[in-house]
Design a protein around this nucleic acid. Structure first.
Lengths: 174, 174, 174, 174
DNA sequence: TTTT
DNA sequence: TTTT
């Protein structure tokens, strides 16, 4: 239900491997940095100047899982989501605003890297769970929350695995 | 020319009258705050919770002129533009990032307020130049650029007019 | 799941009241004719020439119900859907292709008619079921499928109701 | 200028090489068949059923030239255009309607085939003018206009070349 | 800060 | 066939 339209459509390339984390329920949350390129004619020189715009993208749910598995640094991707700005406090206690493109159940993702298997699996990541470092999100985050969307764990909760103590979702909004 | 796609589509309502300024060349630059509404079901209570997202929109050129003339606080509008994040320094010299939806020659605007005369003119603004405060863009901007897109004059440039001082929009972003 | 993107975004006005029908399961199916206006500069005369494009829109599910209830001839609406071309045979047995904008569970609709009560209910249609003509979808459709999307009943199915004959929408597409 | 929104966004693959023609002024006009894939869950069997939708795309101007040069059968492409339905008469003199996605100066195209040169040039087409057959559009077209957008020549007019007699633009609308 |  |  919406009494408005809030839609973002991007085609670009990932600046790094996606950052995959998990909510306490085991839901994937993926953060991406996506570059869209444009070039414009410089009024003075008349030359074509390339310009890269970087976008913070946050994915949830099934799409996040696929993105985490198959996208890699450099991957080209189409995404459709919505704009969202969240407010958080930096070290100095100042309000900081971060605008992200949120891709949830209503969004869409299309991998545009070509035909015949690409990225992810071919880079030796264990099937389904690439790039797991085996422990939790970066230390230091507790005190200096970076503009990640939340402070999710980067390890999925698995069945009856003991849930390690984790203080995520402490002070970061969203 | 672009090697990517960067597109934003919004339908929402203006939180205030548009802020119209002018570049030295006399080109209009309009800043808007646009609200898009959405409601989602709260997982706990099962209730429908309304949620408003605010967007900073910057318009240039012909579209800006039309927007400045006809849009008013509360106006419903369709806009199509692109995402752009710009970096500036706050008073403390810290980097601050502001993300805006830029509507330029490649963008689009549609006023969605209805039939039979609307906003703008009917609110007594002088034809074509609403809400002029009579003096110009901030001095001091050199050091503390506010989150406006540039430091444009809010009056069309007219020959060799002296540029008076102004202290609005001091330091608070967004 | 899609390995492609197929998206249509329209803002326009209805040429007539929506045509509401029902599948045997009681699901609403609404057909709309939507006009989008554009004007272009005539190369010869230099004059601005208005041009109206008409779109066939088919809505399903919840969105169809809302559309059927609240939209009326002249209503302004935002719709998001996908392109779909279906093939049918005309009276002469020739293949005919009709392209429609399909708005289903993945689509979106926003009524853009304004503030303070609008259309629909105010035109005396019985609450929730406007414009029912009291009998059902075309007989004879077996041989000459009309360009409606399917041959849905224009009355919600109610138990073992007798299905009366009707001859609307004879054979002329679009 | 538009008092409406009419936008189509597609990502898909070409079913054949593009069909490039030229207006009397030498402007390129390119026709494409673009497939977008989707799959849906069959209600009966519960299985995922693939479904391909074919789109007629017509490109004009600079975009058409680039498309004609670089796109080939199988190429993946992003296009943004508008819906347009044109009416023409078939052999029997009956009205036929064809809906196309028109990509003109307001549209956009992005080739999504990857990195490191692809298609087009590598297939031996003479630089800049692929697939020229050296003579004009199919005979027989005069009487039985196919649903091509116009009856443009498939050869560019070149400098002081004698313009061969051609009867295009005879009876085909659009 | 808007709107329904 | 709509709308401004």
């Amino acid at each position: 239900m919406a009494r408005g339209v809030n839609k973002v459509i991007l085609i670009g390339n990932l600046g790094q491997d996606p950052d995959t984390r998990y909510t306490p329920n085991g839901n994937a949350v993926v953060n991406l940095n996506l570059a869209t390129d444009e070039s414009y004619k410089d009024r003075q020189t008349g030359q074509l100047v390339p310009k890269t715009e970087w976008h913070r993208v946050v994915m949830f749910g099934k799409i996040a899982e696929v993105a985490g598995q198959y996208l890699r640094k450099g991957s080209k991707v189409y995404i459709e989501g919505k704009l969202q700005t969240r407010k958080w406090q930096n070290k100095e206690g100042q309000d900081v605003y971060t605008t992200e493109v949120v891709v949830d159940i209503n969004g869409q993702m299309q991998m545009l890297d070509s035909r015949g298997g690409e990225g992810g699996m071919s880079q030796g990541a264990p099937a389904g769970r690439p790039q797991q470092s085996g422990y939790n999100a970066p230390a230091g985050q507790q005190n200096n929350p970076p503009p990640q969307s939340g402070g999710y764990s980067n390890q999925p909760s698995q069945g009856s695995m003991p849930e390690p103590v984790d203080d995520f979702d402490d002070d970061i909004p969203f």
